[in-house]
């Protein structure tokens, strides 16, 4: 069982959360010409590290806020959770 510390509500069991994947995917800027390659990168390519992974989680059965988690994909240890900053 993962215990995830929601930055708004505190530590809760993994049952309350849903996963949102790689937190560093950036949508190409609006109003700008986007090449097929850029779009392909945005839609399909993800970081897939063995070790520290920066990812999104949603406290779906709680405060319903999204936040960022830094977690080890080999040991499942959670190093840090933080609120999404403004530019995100």
């Amino acid at each position: 069982m993962l215990e995830i510390k929601c930055p708004y509500c505190g530590k809760r069991s993994q049952n309350e959360f849903s996963y949102g994947g790689d937190a560093n995917v950036k949508r190409p800027a609006l109003g700008k010409e986007v090449s097929d390659k850029e779009w392909d990168n945005f839609v399909y390519l993800r970081k897939n590290p063995r070790g520290n992974h920066s990812e999104l989680w949603h406290h779906v059965a709680g405060c319903r806020k999204w936040f960022k988690v830094s977690r080890d994909t080999l040991t499942h240890e959670i190093y840090n959770t933080e609120k999404l900053n403004e530019e995100f």
């Binding site: 069991s13 993994q14 063995r50 994909t73 080999l74 499942h76």
Partner: peptide, 12 residues
């Protein structure tokens, strides 16, 4: 349901 390289999962 989350990225993992651990060859084991969780009970939920």
């Amino acid at each position: 349901g989350y990225n993992s390289y651990a060859q084991r999962g969780n009970l939920p």
